[in-house]
Design a protein around this nucleic acid. Structure first.
Lengths: 337, 337
DNA sequence: TTGTACGCGTTATCAT
DNA sequence: ATGATAACGCGTACAA
């Protein structure tokens, strides 16, 4: 029995059981059961280990090359409800596979490289997942690329050549569905209000441009992915000489900000203006009015990313997932048909 | 130089520099600088370490008793925007002190104890923070108590005797401020709709009961902390023979659900009914209408909890923080005096 | 079937 | 000023 408060080691158990430490290791690590050790010895060791409160020491195991069962998740902004949901799905899915999550919140500019170098790159994690678009964080991307573990990115926005696999969504298809819905309702003047023009939002904007090539000037608003910004963007759009009858928002967060802005202007949605979001966050179904949006298959994408990264990250990434339009109450025929 | 892809160790650097591994350790671990090693040697070692891409191996250090610089954060439900904000604040504050976060999402019932045993209890973390009320998760609390590292709980709701320190908010004071505000506006019939009756919400409910002892039956609604539930609760409250003129919600999430429910019923807030939330989540300022609520000092509480737990968790916990009422547009004089 | 011995990468304590 | 050496807890060839 160890004196003091020191954790119980295999050697402690071995001494108590009157066997060698290796025997304890054989019994407890459970390799090739029933072949190597006498039943009597096994039971004695197991009993003592339990009684003495033995716990394997993960660092000693890791030093021997065992996987840490830790997955590093680097997320752009966890206060973004979309990413919060993704982290939730990720943690559940990871745990189902026996892994835990180390959270790297990238929201602080300074020291981001530090945190990664210290925790993730330093091979404490078996795999690294990037959540969000990090193309502007060059140092971070460099660090992660240099990591000796597989890396997979989610919602990173596709670019020419990335050094890691990407699980993405077909933003073009989502925008097409939204635009088709608005067109079917009779909308001809559809603006885009896009928050941060990075990653998925950038792709959504590009798709909108493709589908509305002759949109009047001023029909594109970009800024930050925040509720207040959505309200501001709406004010500017409605102040145009030829205001839009519908707004396609880059994210649900911006869309809900637009709903708020409309209310402040004394306008009713969808009577005065139709609004379509993107992502289908939980709040979208409970906003005033309930938001028509494009649903992101978060759980499926997280599962795919986990499959990919735990397989080494070198397999072919899955085809972009296809999002689905969810029609609710924030879209209707335009007032002036 | 190491063959293959093996990470660079001190021994590799030592070989390249023509010195012993101990010398490399002395130089790199930076203990007692300038005394022990020649400047020439130091510079050569430092240069080679940099060139060769040496990284300290955290597990080997941990095996020697070094702290892991990992903080385990166990959160009830990270999709709850309130906790997402807390995790954000926590990760920033932790990183400022050189720590990283291991996320334990407790939202899955089965296997929670397992995840803890594997990741936290097994002394991988230097400290453990509990975010939310875990009184109903007995196995988890038992596991955490048995952990050999300090534990501090946040928003855990105070109970008779907990085995770990708690950083809490004075929910009574918050409810008093909200009720005083409503009373000053002329409200006499104030109901409480409280989501999950655990932790802080439970305390808020108790405070409401104390301040409205003669509330008609049916004025208390409890359920889940979800948007839709808020809407349902409002429907039931307004169906009462003597419906309330104001509703105090247990959380902003419920409050925003109530706003949505009112809109669906064709009622305007605050004309038909006043609504007060609790927490001041980001959305509260951008809801329709903007929500009067009680602001939770999240950053301050997180800082205090980190101070406490990194000091060993045994100091006296700080006095409950006092939340502050934020008056916005969801409260007004009742229609019928 | 079981014990001995070694190494994983570090830090710390001795010598030299 | 620096080098050899011994731990830390565990897994595993190898010997017995």
């Amino acid at each position: 029995m160890p004196e003091g408060d020191r954790p119980v080691t295999m050697t402690d158990v071995a001494r108590a059981a009157g066997v060698s430490q290796s025997t304890v290791s054989r019994v407890l690590s459970g390799a090739d059961v029933a072949i190597a050790v006498t039943d009597a010895t096994r039971e004695r060791v197991l009993r003592l280990a339990r009684e003495m409160g033995y716990r394997p020491h993960p660092f000693a195991r890791a030093l021997r090359g065992a996987p840490t069962m830790l997955i590093g998740a680097i997320v752009r902004d966890i206060t973004d409800v979309f990413f919060a949901r993704a982290i939730d799905a990720l943690s559940l899915e990871a745990r189902a596979r026996g892994y835990s999550l180390v959270l790297g919140n990238a929201r602080a500019q300074a020291g981001e490289a530090l945190a990664l170098a210290a925790v993730l790159e330093a091979r404490q994690c078996d795999a690294i997942l990037l959540l969000g678009d990090f193309h502007d964080e060059e140092q971070l991307v460099r660090d992660v690329r240099a990591a000796p573990v597989p890396v997979v990115a989610l919602w990173h926005g596709r670019r020419a050549r990335d050094s890691f696999a990407t699980v993405a969504v077909d933003n073009g298809a989502g925008v097409e569905a939204a635009m088709a819905h608005l067109a079917a309702l009779g909308h001809r003047r559809i603006a885009f209000a896009g928050g941060d023009p990075v990653g998925d939002v950038r792709e959504r904007h590009a798709a909108w441009q493709r589908l509305a090539p002759d949109a009047p000037p001023g029909y594109t608003e970009t800024g930050t992915n925040a509720l207040e910004w959505g309200a501001e963007a709406l004010r500017r759009l409605l102040a145009l000489p030829e205001p839009p009858t519908a707004v396609l928002a880059g994210t649900d967060v911006v869309a809900i900000g637009i709903l708020h802005g409309a209310h402040e202007l004394g306008l009713r949605v969808p009577d005065a203006v139709s609004v379509v979001g993107f992502d289908d966050i939980a709040l979208a179904a409970a906003s005033v009015p309930a938001l028509t949006t494009v649903r992101m298959p978060v759980a499926e994408m997280v599962t795919a990313a986990l499959d990919l990264v735990l397989a080494g990250g070198t397999d072919e990434p899955p085809l972009p997932f296809v999002p689905e339009l969810v029609v609710r109450a924030s879209t209707a025929r335009p007032a002036s048909g």
